[in-house]
Amino acid sequence: MPGAPFPGNQLKEYFRQTGEVWLFTVRFFREAIRRPFEWRELLHQCYTIGNKSLFLVGMTGFIMGLVLTLQTRPTMEEFGAVAYMPSMVGISIIREIGPVITALICAGKIGSSIGAELGSMKVTEQIAAMEVSGTNPFKFLVVTRILAATLMVPLLVIMSDTISLFGSFLVEHFKGEVSFRLFFNQIFRNLTFGDLIPATVKTFFFGFAIGLVGCFKGYYSREGTAGVGRAANSAVVIASMLLFVIDFIAVLVADIFYDL
């Protein structure tokens, strides 16, 4: 077919991109430990990433808790296991649903915004302007954003989990007359470090992946404004896919250490 890309070229492009991502990651670690540190920009990015996602993540978490409890309750009632509702909901939210759903929301919100911002800075030559003023744009723009995403996503997940459990409590309270104390006692009695630690540790990797992909796509965006759109879009798609891969690896590793 005329004009169709040769599969060999696609494969070559795939390996080229993989190599570029690898070099980008290595450069991130190298620059992150080298002075001077951009503390002010890091704090600014933490505030931007955390604060701007707060409402969306909180809202999603609340609805997630409500829906999960509302949908599970009839089945649990049918089996006479309604007393296990708090622990069942608690474990599923803290271990899996909370981190993954929140990270996916963050991939959409944070990943796309980083990709679009850096992409537009690239095409309007703002990154080049930083470079010619003798400043390291990678350190100022990329390192701070990746670190901020790595630090903020776990906090957003913890907040989302908490709000989600509160949503779940509301359903249990109105449908099963369960008190606040009983509900949370039940949850914490059945939670172990094996539930908490891997679930929290993997969120750092989620944040890192979201920041890294967003920055990579934005920093190397090409072809004008259309390229900026593509950078934002592919940042979300690739980061979302990566989250599931990381989640799968995290479950495998946690299984080895905690014998889940």
Binding site: S120, M121, T124, E125, Q126, A128, A129, M130, E131, V132, S133, G134, T135, N136
Partner: peptide, 18 residues
């Protein structure tokens, strides 16, 4: 980077940090 501080560059599109 030291040399770049001695060489100013005015971009065609201004390139101000928006």
């Amino acid at each position: 980077d030291q040399i770049r501080t001695e060489v100013g560059f005015l971009f065609q599109g201004s390139a101000l940090y928006d």
